[in-house]
């Protein structure tokens, strides 16, 4: 069989683009898990709501970038509200309770979107439609911009965590919640802020990815499932591992979809998940624990 190099290269680019978006979704998820042991089942819904907010603001203002910023802010605020009302009372209880509560949130949000926006998918117009030639294909510049922007947001997050005053608070709280409090760090608010940041990142991914697919109320599930696979494969709570795993899995799925239908490609990532669980249950991209 001849190896279709051109298709493989195109799929590499595609895989990197979705990989960066997935990394954006998953890094919020893993940040939230790392600091408060919360598995946010509603993360996909934040992605979906971000996309819808993008649709709403874009239709009223006509400006994609404004829509991106406003959607992120609104969803971040919503995330903060969710954290305060449903997760704060569960602090200190078994982490499984947080899965249940966020599952409840996801049902509410998804059905709200269905009721508010209807079952027909909406479209986000991409901010520019330029293309360049990749073999026989006209490849849209916009996809490249998505990847670069996602990378920029993730880098920004990294720098903030590494050097920012509040970034140090977040890392200290992640490592030792009790001692962080004893050092005067307002831990409940740090939790809220981290949840808002994660929500905002999910919303940003939703708006950025919106133009590539339709926006509908059920779009969050695919993403949250993939993001779950990514954070388990990358090592729960490990930011670098999640990013690496997101790119790795997206590339695999992109290559797989040369031969199978895209909806079956999730089976490929599930196989990666199974293998990870069998051989390295702490995650593929984590140094072996001593």
């Amino acid at each position: 069989m001849e190896i279709p190099w051109d298709i493989i290269l195109i799929q590499t680019v595609n895989g990197l683009v979705t990989g960066m978006i997935l990394a954006l979704v998953a890094s919020g998820l893993t940040l939230i898990f790392g600091i408060m042991d919360v598995v946010n089942f509603a993360h996909g819904e934040l992605f979906m709501l971000g996309a819808y907010m993008g649709v709403v603001v874009l239709t009223t203002t006509g400006n994609f970038w404004l829509a991106l910023v406003i959607a992120v802010l609104i969803v971040a605020l919503l995330g903060a509200a969710m954290q305060i009302t449903t997760l704060r009372p569960l602090l200190g209880r078994d982490p499984l309770n947080t899965i249940l509560a966020t599952f409840g949130l996801s049902l509410v949000l998804q059905n709200y979107a269905l009721w508010q926006f209807g079952p027909v998918a909406r479209k986000i117009q991409e901010p520019f439609t330029g293309q360049f030639t990749l073999f026989y294909l006209q490849y849209p510049w916009y996809r490249i911009v998505i990847a670069v922007l996602s990378a920029a947001i993730i880098t920004g997050l990294y720098l903030f965590l590494k050097y920012g005053r509040y970034g140090i608070w977040i890392r200290a709280t992640t490592q030792d919640r009790v001692m962080a409090q004893a050092m005067g760090i307002p831990v409940p608010w740090v939790h809220t802020a981290v949840f808002a940041i994660g929500a905002g990142m999910a919303a940003a991914s939703g708006v950025l990815f919106g133009p590539l697919v339709g926006v509908n109320h059920a779009m969050g599930l695919d993403w949250v499932l993939k993001a779950f696979i990514v954070v388990v494969v990358g090592g729960m709570g490990n930011l670098g591992g999640s990013i690496a795993a997101a790119i790795f899995i997206s590339l695999l799925e992109a290559y797989a979809s040369i031969w199978v239908s895209p909806s079956q490609a999730i089976i490929v990532s599930s196989i990666v998940l199974i293998l990870t669980l069998l051989f390295r249950p702490t995650g593929l991209f984590v140094p072996t624990p001593k």
């Binding site: 309770n97 249940l100 509560a101 409840g104 949130l105 049902l107 509410v108 998804q110 059905n111």
Partner: peptide, 13 residues
């Protein structure tokens, strides 16, 4: 599912 979801969350808490 909106009211049922809210009732469920309240029961979890």
């Amino acid at each position: 599912l909106i009211p049922v979801g809210i009732i469920f969350i309240l029961m979890v808490i």
